[in-house]
Design a binder for these strands. Structure first.
Lengths: 231, 231
DNA sequence: CCAAAAGTGTTGGGACTACACCCATGA
DNA sequence: TCATGGGTGTAGTCCCAACACTTTTGG
């Protein structure tokens, strides 16, 4: 311990809610890992682990994400810190929760890194979870829904190149209501944050849709002019 | 320590940004305390202290608030957790930051509880602060500004009974721009969350303004109908 | 040629902005 | 009576929601 301090000290963990979008069955998914050890052995939980001395909380979250799921270089943001007494039967554990958004390109990594049995679950049909992880997930979902409408984070859940319809579906899935496609297109085009590509969607049994990319540069110009991204 | 754990453990503190509104000089203020001990002895800092075993983070924040400023029963919300290595020269300290909103009725308490010299400072003209408290304050201000426009938290900064003009000034001060009084009134009345009182403002050298109260009941009806509070 | 999804405009209503004057009160 | 802030209405504009058909492509 680095200095004199009279009180007992807690362990500090990071836990990470990992969101992914399944474009095949149009659902929002979450990565859970099966616990090998007590307490809650055999139960599903959000991936996480203890913070190490010398690393920041963000670094700890990134490290856990990488170690437990193989995922790297994704959107990762601090969510909330859970510290109630009794949330961990082993003792006093404070957990800094994060949430990550993973594009479908990287979903396969999760399945492959099977050391501790990581799996995708539909976000609205989850098993009973270890610890207070159900509450953490609720908070994460609320945050995702809220932030989606005023920040351009939805793109993190899509492949780099996507169609407008995919973007629209993403909003519909997360917000839980249908959107009018004409109005949605008008809105998204009017804020001018997409770059139109010369490529078309491939391998669909009907008219192919145009592909777009999120244009970070345009977005930064937008925000620097004081404009904001709104649904 | 309650269970076997191989890594070194951090101390966990709560720090609390306390906002108050000064209706005399129309500024947003923040409570700072002067540090008595090293490190940063003599510097100003956000009130805070270590979390104790057996209490939740919210409880710890409330306790610190009460101990250091005498303030009790106010709006208090978790803000963000700061955990970078090197943020405290004494060693590894993770700090869960909170922010509180205090009505002018209670401002005097702060001055009275002078044990550790607590003082109000204008939020936009602060001294150099201890630790990383300047960044914590920036995050807190951003959050306050953001949340003010979509949640009815502004009332927490006003006395129980207030005039529409005071409410408007609050928004102008925090958001940093002037608002049209006619439009502001229309907007605030149209959402129907205020109860008009039979009382008038007292002791002003001009026409007295009507007093209003925030009506929690009406607000709950509003949100339960799916409507939301927007600026 | 058929099935399936892509892509495209217009209109009406509600909300926001901009703007200026009279009213009530205490000194 | 005057100085000071309280309180009020309207018109133009913009944004949003509602709504249905034609186009393109692969099978």
């Amino acid at each position: 311990m680095g200095f004199t301090y009279d009180y007992e000290m807690p362990s500090v963990a990071v836990d990470c809610v990992i969101f992914g979008l399944d474009l095949d069955d149009n659902t929002l998914k979450v990565v859970l890992v099966e616990r090998g050890l007590e307490p809650f052995a055999g139960k599903w939980a959000i991936p996480g682990g203890f913070v190490r001395k010398g690393e920041s909380l963000d670094e700890a979250a990134m490290r856990e994400l990488r170690e437990e799921t193989g995922i790297d270089e994704v959107f990762l943001e601090q969510l909330y810190t859970f510290g109630g007494p009794g949330r961990d039967p082993r003792g006093w554990v404070i957990s800094v929760a994060y949430y990550a958004l993973v594009s479908p390109d990287k979903h396969s990594i999760v399945a492959a890194t099977d050391a501790r049995r990581a799996q995708w679950f539909p976000a609205n049909r989850l098993p009973r979870l270890a610890f207070d992880h159900t509450s953490i997930l609720e908070v994460a979902l609320e945050r995702l829904r809220g932030k989606l409408t005023y920040a351009p984070i939805g793109f993190e859940l899509l492949p780099e190149k996507f169609t407008i319809k995919q973007l629209q579906r993403l909003y519909e899935i997360v917000l839980g209501r249908t959107l009018d496609n004409r109005n949605f297109r008008k809105k998204i085009f009017s804020m001018n944050v997409l770059r139109e590509l010369d490529e078309m969607q491939q391998g669909v049994p009907h008219r192919a849709a145009r592909l777009y990319k999120f244009d970070v540069r345009k977005y930064k110009q937008l925000t620097s002019r004081g404009m904001s991204f709104e649904l």
